[in-house]
Simulated scan of single mutants.
Amino acid sequence: MAEHPIEGLMKTAMESIKEMVDVNTIVGDPVETPDGSVIIPVSRVACGFAAGGGEFESGSDRNQQKQDQQQDGTSIPFGGGSGAGVSVQPVGFLVVGQGQIRLLPVDGNAMVDRLIDVAPQILSQIQGMFQRGNKKREEEKIQC
Rank of each mutant, 00 (worst) to 15 (best):
P90H: 07
D22S: 07
Q143W: 03
V106E: 13
D113C: 06
E140P: 04
Q131I: 15
V95K: 11
T74I: 05
A46P: 01
Q131T: 12
K66R: 15
S60T: 14
D61S: 06
M129V: 14
P30V: 05
A110L: 09
G54F: 05
S37N: 13
L115D: 13
T74Q: 06
L103W: 00
V91S: 11
V23H: 04
M20R: 14
K136W: 03
G83K: 05
A110D: 10
T74R: 06
L9P: 01
I6A: 09
A13C: 04
E55A: 06
G133N: 14
I142R: 11
Q121N: 15
E138N: 12
D68L: 04
Q71H: 01
V118H: 06
N134G: 14
Q69M: 09
G36R: 03
F130E: 15
M111V: 08
I142A: 15
S82D: 07
G83P: 02
R62S: 09
E15S: 14
L123C: 09
G53K: 04
K11P: 00
Q98G: 11
E140Q: 13
S16I: 04
G59I: 04
S58N: 11
G52C: 01
V112F: 03
E57H: 13
I122S: 11
G52Y: 00
M14R: 13
V112A: 12
V42Q: 02
S124D: 14
I142T: 14
D117L: 09
Q89P: 03
G73W: 00
F56I: 14
Q100N: 11
G99Y: 01
A2P: 15
D117A: 14
D22K: 04
N63T: 12
I126Y: 03
V31M: 08
Q65H: 01
T25M: 03
F78L: 08
D35E: 07
P41D: 05
E32M: 12
D72R: 11
G97M: 03
R114Q: 11
M10W: 00
G97E: 05
I142F: 05
F78R: 06
V38S: 03
E138D: 13
G52T: 06
L94C: 13
I116W: 01
T12C: 01
D72F: 01
R137D: 11
I6W: 00
V23A: 10
K136H: 11
L94I: 10
P41G: 05
D72K: 15
V95T: 11
G83Q: 07
C144R: 13
V21H: 00
G133K: 06
F93P: 02
A2R: 10
G99A: 08
G133A: 12
S58V: 08
F56H: 07
A84W: 07
G128T: 10
G36I: 05
S82P: 02
Q65L: 07
I40G: 04
A50R: 08
R132M: 13
G52N: 05
V95I: 14
Q64P: 02
D72I: 06
V118A: 13
G48V: 06
Q98A: 10
T25D: 02
P105A: 07
T25V: 12
S16C: 02
G99I: 10
V118G: 07
V88Q: 06
V112W: 01
N109V: 03
F56Y: 15
V45N: 03
N63C: 09
D72L: 09
K141I: 12
V38D: 02
V118Y: 03
K11R: 12
Q70E: 06
E57K: 12
M10S: 08
Q67D: 10
G73M: 02
